[in-house]
Amino acid sequence: MTVGGEQLLFVRQLVQRKTAIVLGEDKGYLVDSRLSSLARDLGHADATTMLDHLRKKPDLALEQRVLEAMTTNETLWFRDRAPFEALRQHVLPELARSGAGSRQLRIWSAACSSGQEIYSIAVLLEEHFADRFAGWKIDLAGTDFSVEMVKRASEGLYSTLEVNRGLPAASLVRHFDREGANWRLKPSIRSRARFWRMNLVEPWAPMPAWDIVLLRNVLIYFDIPTKEKVLRAASRQMAPGGYLLLGGAETAVGICPELVPEKIGDATFYRLEGREQ
């Protein structure tokens, strides 16, 4: 049964209040498809019954699971390809030159989901930049709203369906070990990344400045004021000369003027206006 009425209003308000994601009035089918299996797992007849239960009796653990089910999205290896080509051919070589003094490289995947994005970077560094960044302090970080996703990303364990998505076969056999029906990232890659939970629409805890911020396919869910707030916060976390990458359907133009688009290869990155050259 498609979720509607008071239950739909309740979940729309909950999602917007906690994650700033705006869920349209016509998304009952989406709520239903995202919450049905959770409802069944927890012994409810369907999503409507579960939401009714949550409305009447506040339950923070259930609320978090509902939010996670509503906000978790598919991810894949080397998503969209072009940004990773630009990183390989232009951005990382440039950072290798400009950071030669400090010998530090910091990259943050701001909505890391199950970790494929930041691990794709780790694979890229291992396969193409092992010599150039030898002896550097490399900090690869992933954060996500979902506790479950942070746990999954830390584990580095993926199904065959997941490793089929965008990961070259040569990288699969080089960096993963078969574990039953799944594939586990080898410690040499897994140990390079760290993960923690972070809600981008709540105040940000202190963090280092990042040379590359990956904030992809997140802003699309937010209203304009929230986009602006998150982009400004992200811009403050960028190291001088740093790069921000948004999703292909997202832009900072007209929202956050201090972020200036720059076409690099076939991808668009954003850089701080008036940055030191």
């Binding site: 349209g24 369906l161 396919n217 997202e250």
Partner: peptide, 26 residues
Amino acid sequence: ESLFDKLAILGFHQPVQGDSTNDFAH
């Protein structure tokens, strides 16, 4: 989609920039 990903890796199929799976983009 996995087949399309592989075709893209091999240079035969350009992925569409952006994401078509954002059911609740508004």
